[in-house]
Write a protein that binds this DNA or RNA. Sequence first.
DNA 1: CAACGTTGTGCAAACGTTTGCATTACGGGG
DNA 2: CCCCGTAATGCAAACGTTTGCACAACGTTG
Lengths: 338, 338
Amino acid sequence: MSQRPSIKDIARLAGVSPSTVSRALAGSPRISQTTRQRIESIARELNYTPSLAARSLVTGDVPILGVIAPTLSDPYVASVMKGLEQASQTRGYQRLVASSHGDPEQELDMVRMLAGHHIAGLIIISSRVTQGYDPILEGLSIPVVFINSLHTGNGVFNVMTDNEYGGWLATQHLIQQGHTHIAYLSGPERGRSQAARLAGYRRALEEGGQHYQASFVLPGDGSIEAGRSALHWWLHQPASNRPTAMFCYNDLSALGLLAEAYQQGVHIPNDLSVVGFDNAPVAEISIPPLTTVEQRTERLGRLAVASLLAALAQKPVTDIILRGELIVRASVKKRPIR
Amino acid sequence: MSQRPSIKDIARLAGVSPSTVSRALAGSPRISQTTRQRIESIARELNYTPSLAARSLVTGDVPILGVIAPTLSDPYVASVMKGLEQASQTRGYQRLVASSHGDPEQELDMVRMLAGHHIAGLIIISSRVTQGYDPILEGLSIPVVFINSLHTGNGVFNVMTDNEYGGWLATQHLIQQGHTHIAYLSGPERGRSQAARLAGYRRALEEGGQHYQASFVLPGDGSIEAGRSALHWWLHQPASNRPTAMFCYNDLSALGLLAEAYQQGVHIPNDLSVVGFDNAPVAEISIPPLTTVEQRTERLGRLAVASLLAALAQKPVTDIILRGELIVRASVKKRPIR
DNA sequence: CAACGTTGTGCAAACGTTTGCATTACGGGG
DNA sequence: CCCCGTAATGCAAACGTTTGCACAACGTTG
């Protein structure tokens, strides 16, 4: 394992100065064909790779984007990542990825760690930090894009799904199907998306002339487990006041609910209608296939990168809000008139 | 967005030399308490973060691990990532992540890109490159750990599931349950895991006195879609020679098969028994819950980091092979004697 | 009081690049 | 034959750190 070859080694072998090598490799027109070719072949032979650290030091820009997500094992996050990846890769940026495990403290730690790399920009997926972000972000002096949260500040931008609308869409669909007892299974407490979906649920209820009752809003965190517990909660409700439908914060928890329902002999959608959120790949293969609100996750990721790079290029950037649509599958049934 | 403060700015404000600042911040004992505190408070005030690029340049080591995976949206990969994350974070390493989309060409591109950062080490998950890797890896002169592939060379190490054993385990289970017509749904063509699982399948068959027939090995790529097609293939088999059980390369494709079976009115496990591989979180909530071979994915990730860091510390490192166990759920049924 | 440790600090080189500004070589026009 | 433009290349500074070595100040000790 010898030392990596540097530009100087090439220079020595080619009998030129380091600057010439740098220019040749960068494709400057001021270098003659012959020299360029000689240098290129030597570089290839040594299998030279330039030190990005050194380059960044002088040029001042690091072709890396920092990405922070609450977890990596949620299909929603995975899909956003995919979008991020595509968009950034084609534009020559790499990604330094960290996860916060949904903990605001850790999220801030990650921001600080990434800041040390003097990266070009930062993308934060579903932030769980609710306050005190602004001063820190200001101090960063790099653009920051939040996906599905809402923060403001100089150099701070947002790309998000219209979660309120999505929540409304899901609930409204259930109302249209004749349901009058609709519960909502919540997502992570501090999440902005959670608050918005709940608000949409509430608005749809009120617009439909149904009254919102807090006891029909179950705590949850968007996990499979949360879905399971939700079913047990449902089982324990008195038949007289038992919801006939449930809107779940995300597909993952909806899927947990479906699984537990199957095991407990509860039939979906005959006994209980379910709507999820995300349109994750797995939503298509659940049994029954899950009715859900689409979130164009890959698109969110791509747009976030676009916004970030636009901001870097000093172009005007505005927040982006994407509306998803309802994907009707088989987990919802018209409520029988009894 | 002003320029980031450097060590020099602090030096100027504190009335000392840059070296003093560097030492103070690094906690060198040769600096007096008073100076140290003055410097620290100024640094905090400017919210200074050291330039890792500059530091790396002089110290020669970059606290970053490169990670390459075929995709990010496979639960298996997500889980391995989780392990990688935990282990590397606590040891002060960050991760530069790239995905190859399962394309050997792109995988090599990614290796080259990451090499430019002069990262400390490289971890490659489920490599799809089958040949010609060795010279490139040699040229890297950094340790490389492969997860679930098998490559050799100087500074090259492997951490893997015993895929052959896993394949044997799954198939053997089906044989024990009385099945005599067992098909295998393949994974990505060039994958090493795929080859090993197939080999295990074959060995179990032969040990069980059943003869291996190539027509029972279906092409696939580990996707949901592959599982769906597998079911259609099954439907078109003549009843006389139709498999009564299928071992799938991974849970994702097994899940696709389950979903399609449900839609086509094929009952799992009555009509067809299914075994997956990975024990992904979703395997627990499928309907019916999926019998599968556990792969300690998070552990794989953690071990990979451990191996890499051990190699960096010049400690002896050996390849690691982990044996999973069979997780029996409800997608397999004893074959009725007819 | 000279020699010598200690303790705290500064100097300067080095890491691998990029880049503005010379400098060289060469050929052509006057 | 001289001047000058152009093409090709080299020089040296700069980026923000770390670190071996030198140095100053200040006791202590003999």
